[in-house]
Design a protein around this nucleic acid. Structure first.
Lengths: 204, 204
DNA sequence: TGCTGTTTCTGTACCGAGTCCAGAAAGTCT
DNA sequence: AGACTTTCTGGACTCGGTACAGAAACAGCA
């Protein structure tokens, strides 16, 4: 938790600068059509510094999504420990989904429409999926009274529920300009998963 | 459905040649440690011809998986049309899983253990997931009596059930040398998903 | 004022995946 | 002998990502 460094050369650039330059270029040329060099040139920094702020070009597509997803641990942590696991996870995911509305549409969504067939997105998408799934699986496994012999069931539930949520997000994204809030989509998609796993995962 | 071409220069290479060369090198140097040039050099062809047979280096990791997955349309097609969708899909996936046993372990699995943290696999994995999910979703939507207003539920089910199956496959892969058949893993993982979606998707 | 340590920034060189393309090679069919 | 068709080859190229050495810009301290 280091705040602003007092020593060393002060930063002349920032994630925000690069994100902004990238946003402009994505609108003009699409994601696939702009190179990292284009972005840094517009931002007025060297190509190398880009990698001081982002590990990957595709990270730019997911900045908004990642920001929303960052709230997951907190949402999981503040769940009632008495609740069944499945409903706890459902609540956490719905809280997360509530962060996304018509006003906040990530690049990954808009560029999805443009890229269509391109598999550019796919590669980076699974990385997010796995992170989220992993967090949920940890949460499930850490629940009091969770038997180790149900490990597979726990992981299956985590994967299934996150995949359902992702499917909902995709549908929401595909809804175009008329999409409203994300939460109802997610609720409809994940509820059956939760109810299906409830007898398996919840001891009573 | 063109059989053997009668015209043009006959092929001097084949997918099998490249797969074999690649297999050897993966054992010696791991996947990440071998370049496409290494593979084609050993196979005795030029680097360019590689791309006549594979679109991507990572395709090599999935040859066995893809071969198994190719049976999905057939497995879905021969389902009893009277069955509820959810149990039909469950049967189809179990048939598919039956194709994988201890004797047939894809590269994607073995190299997974080696690569561990590396995200090499991730990128190519989602492509497969999406294909399978898409097929299942089509099947669900094409069922007689499937109302269009349940579109989201259908897609959510497809994603969730395939994700659960994938989680089972991952667990199976992680079981190492002692892994037996894949099917029981998959059954345990997808059954709750199917039972959860049954009241939503099946009209009666 | 200068020295030291720390951090950011830059330039360059490098690697490997994937694309493009012009042309050679090796057949079959008139 | 062409003409046609397909595979194969080699080279040049783009782009994402890595490695690294050194410059730039500060703070603190002598």
């Amino acid at each position: 938790m280091s705040f602003s460094r007092t020593t060393g050369r002060p930063r002349q650039s920032s994630r925000a600068m690069l994100e902004e330059a990238a946003s402009e270029l994505f609108l003009e040329q699409t994601y696939a059509g702009t190179t990292i060099g284009d972005i840094t040139r517009r931002a007025g920094v060297s190509r190398t510094t880009f990698f001081n702020y982002f590990a990957t070009k595709s990270d730019l597509l997911w900045v908004d999504v990642d920001a929303g997803l960052a709230a997951l641990p907190a949402a999981l942590a503040q769940c009632d420990r008495a609740e069944p696991v499945t409903v706890a996870v459902r609540h956490a995911l719905l809280t997360l989904a509530a962060g996304f509305g018509p006003g906040r549409v990530p690049w990954a969504v808009t560029q999805y429409e443009v890229m269509a067939t391109e598999g550019e997105l796919e590669s980076s998408a699974l990385a997010r999926f796995l992170v989220v799934t992993g967090r949920v699986a940890e949460f499930v496994a850490a629940r009091p009274g969770f038997a180790a012999d149900r490990d597979l069931a726990g992981r299956a539930f985590s994967s299934a529920v996150v995949a359902a949520a992702a499917a909902a997000a995709a549908e929401w994204a595909a809804a175009g300009v008329h999409r409203g809030d994300l939460a109802p989509y997610v609720d409809l998609a994940i509820s059956p998963v939760c109810s299906g796993f409830r007898p398996v995962l919840d001891p009573r």
